[in-house]
Nucleic acid binder design. Structure first.
Lengths: 224, 224
DNA sequence: CATTGGAATATTGTCAACAATGGCGTTGAT
DNA sequence: ATCAACGCCATTGTTGACAATATTCCAATG
């Protein structure tokens, strides 16, 4: 594994480790086709291999890694086709959720989103990729939780995670980052003004640039 | 556990056990709030407790059971609210998939669906609930796999499983069963005649009766 | 008689040792 | 020099024993 800071930070809770590995994959610290070796991870996180196995199973059901019996786990390699299909579902789910969000939004929800948005913007400016990642995730989660259908919100979260592999190649692109930050602010504004039409439109359009960036990047690497 | 046939049938593969338990839950052999005890299951399936733990984790991520640390697993109790929310997502996903299915459908797909439909009808007539359950699942899976987006098909499968708890109360209702069988035949016909509009309509409407039946049953049990 | 404390039991969580498997390199033959 | 067979090493899979935690039941006390 090419992960630099292999500090032994005892993190007993499996879900904490899962999140950390999701982050590593999303930020491109672990790349597609790269192997994840149970014992290495156990050492790195200061837990028993047993815990890591559980984490790897979770990552597999999310779709971030692939496990083969007696062979081990590798980060999944998404083909353009996969990315297109995943984003098709995301657009469907997130568009629907935006339609369902109660308008005008509860003040506390708006306040929380504003707070997250501002911290996200700051992290983006400072180039703190880890925080950018976390706050972006939190923004989306908070936003879609407001749709009032927890099962829909879960599905959205699930597919956002799946897409992380695709985003790993283009995350950190300052241009995309700036645009995302701006659009988050715009979303909050639409919520406040109860502008449903624009909210739905932007909720769908907001994720497209990262899809296109991945497809573009793939083309550059492997040609047409 | 109220499961009668506690035969010790060695089923080494975790997914086989998972399917069996899904079936038990879907057919109401294990009811909501009922506990699933690891050692009992290990004994019943003739496997190590360790395997059962894995199965329970899978059932938890599907959403069929709830696990609490040091307390164990119970079949999830779906409130009407949950059922409504789950079905809202199902309608969204399945409607979209029906829109995407290539028309006219490949002959081999139609042939396979016809075969499944006929076996399903026979099982329904014979009152073989287990086979009805399996063939119904297989029909839906085969149908939605034809949408060309495997990620969408997976999500549909996922939510169909979630809904199984809700269906456990009304499965076996001969009237609902007859209707489902008929509608499957109808779906095949629409596929053959490339009747997109009706296909999409029926794909969405097809699942509504079981939702309504659950809500009705819930009202009967707990009042308004 | 209700209530609280605590032991006994039932159940799940964690671990370390061992078994099984697959990949890789070496050796030997042609 | 190339290729196949074999054995070794890295890695994952499986198991049983032990630890930690919750639940139940009973008894003692007010």
């Amino acid at each position: 594994m090419a992960v630099a800071k292999a500090k032994v930070t005892a993190a007993t809770d499996p879900s904490v480790i899962t999140n950390k590995l999701e982050e590593d994959i999303a930020l491109g610290r672990i790349l597609p086709r790269e192997r994840l070796i149970e014992e290495e991870l156990a050492l790195r996180f200061g837990v028993n291999r047993h815990v890591i196995r559980q984490v790897l199973m979770e990552l597999e059901t999310i779709g971030l890694i692939i496990r083969q019996k007696n062979k081990g786990a590798t980060v999944r390699d998404l083909l353009p086709e996969d990315v297109i299909n995943i984003y098709a579902v995301r657009e469907l789910l997130e568009g629907k959720a935006a339609e369902l969000i109660e308008m005008p939004a509860k003040p506390e929800v708006v306040a929380r989103l504003k707070d997250i948005q501002e911290r996200h913007a700051k992290a983006a400016e400072a180039g703190e990729l880890t925080n950018v990642f976390r706050l972006n995730l939190l923004f989306h989660k908070t936003f879609f939780a407001a749709c009032g259908n927890p099962h829909l919100a879960d599905a959205i979260q699930h597919f956002a995670l799946k897409a992380h592999i695709a985003r790993s190649l283009t995350v950190g692109d300052p241009k995309l980052l700036r645009r995302a930050v701006e659009e988050h602010a715009e979303i909050v504004r639409y919520l406040e003004t109860a502008d449903r039409a624009n909210l739905v439109r932007l909720a769908v359009e907001h994720i497209i640039p990262s899809k296109d960036a991945y497809l573009e990047s793939y083309r550059r690497r492997f040609g047409e």
